[in-house]
Design a protein around this nucleic acid. Sequence first.
DNA 1: ACTGTCATGTAAAACGTTACATGATTCT
DNA 2: AGAATCATGTAACGTTTTACATGACAGT
Lengths: 194, 194
Amino acid sequence: MSLRYALLALLTAQPMTGYDISKGFSGSVAHVWHAPDSQIYPELNRMERDGLLTSEQVPWGKRSTKKEYHVTEAGLTAFRAWMDEPLDIRRQRDPAYLKAAYLDWAQPEAAREQLRKQREYWRDHLALLEGTRAMLLDRSHPTLVARLSHLPEEQGELAARYRIHAYNGLIAHAKTELAWIDDGLALVDELDGQ
Amino acid sequence: MSLRYALLALLTAQPMTGYDISKGFSGSVAHVWHAPDSQIYPELNRMERDGLLTSEQVPWGKRSTKKEYHVTEAGLTAFRAWMDEPLDIRRQRDPAYLKAAYLDWAQPEAAREQLRKQREYWRDHLALLEGTRAMLLDRSHPTLVARLSHLPEEQGELAARYRIHAYNGLIAHAKTELAWIDDGLALVDELDGQ
DNA sequence: ACTGTCATGTAAAACGTTACATGATTCT
DNA sequence: AGAATCATGTAACGTTTTACATGACAGT
């Protein structure tokens, strides 16, 4: 059910089409809540059916149109209610830790290969996160800019500070993962050398 | 599909019943891969059907029996194959980060309350993880003991070292979360004071 | 004319959560 | 006798992934 609120969060910055969302997603909410197109479009339809969004047909090219979604009052209310609701904490379920715990069952070379892949993924991801945080810090991040344009100074400042805080957490997490993966690689080398 | 491998991992230590697993789970694999009973029993049945496990009826009390699952050769092969397979990295999808990013939409007191709850959860969780790591370090952890009893010295050492490594990662992760949550609480106080 | 990107989905399968259901055994 | 724990699931529902499907528009 969080996808719904991720979409609501994004649409409070500005009206968007499903396509805008599924692209713009990459640069912002996707870091926090990834979803493929095939989940986004149907969910937008359900949200409209439930009265959280309205859609407006906007001309696209000469003959065609696209559907731009706007958050309704009911949508805002639902979002605020969700934000005030206690968070349901989900248990850890990460195959990386599961595998790491049983690395004695893998071929050392396969183990190294996997750890290197993970390291690469987290490095790239970290770079993305740091890039996004930089844009938030200098207030050049597109979604934030859209939001600031229709918010009073002080409200905008709040929004920016909390977005940055979230990225601080994501970045700290990525760095912790990277350090742990490096430890894993060193451990494989140590234990394989015997 | 990882639940299957989590169960396989656990059953390589010793034969167990579904109940043993769903309890013993708490003290070991569950930290890495949580699952409720209602998912464990059917999966064990499917794994038996697929030839990864065999089950033995063991007497329980005077009239009753229970089903003890043993890993087959095919099960070991499947587990090793999975361990050598490249890991499919899953994208972040944590409602805590999503909420943190939009904390300007929550009532400050609701925000504080949620952060306190999260802090409590992670503190408890961290204590559990550190307790488990301590048992791994002094080789008193029950599942590890069972495993060491049928493994040559050197193999057992490998197993212990990798289990500990996994817990190091989980503990580092929990500490990072806690530090970030504290930052969040400080931030709410700062921004609410205006 | 062709390629890339904009635009919007459906369908099926896999995975996971929550609630319900039941009975035997062991301990006090 | 009653409570706690051992033991094993089913059913319904919701979420997520993966694969497939289609067509219009814009730039070269």
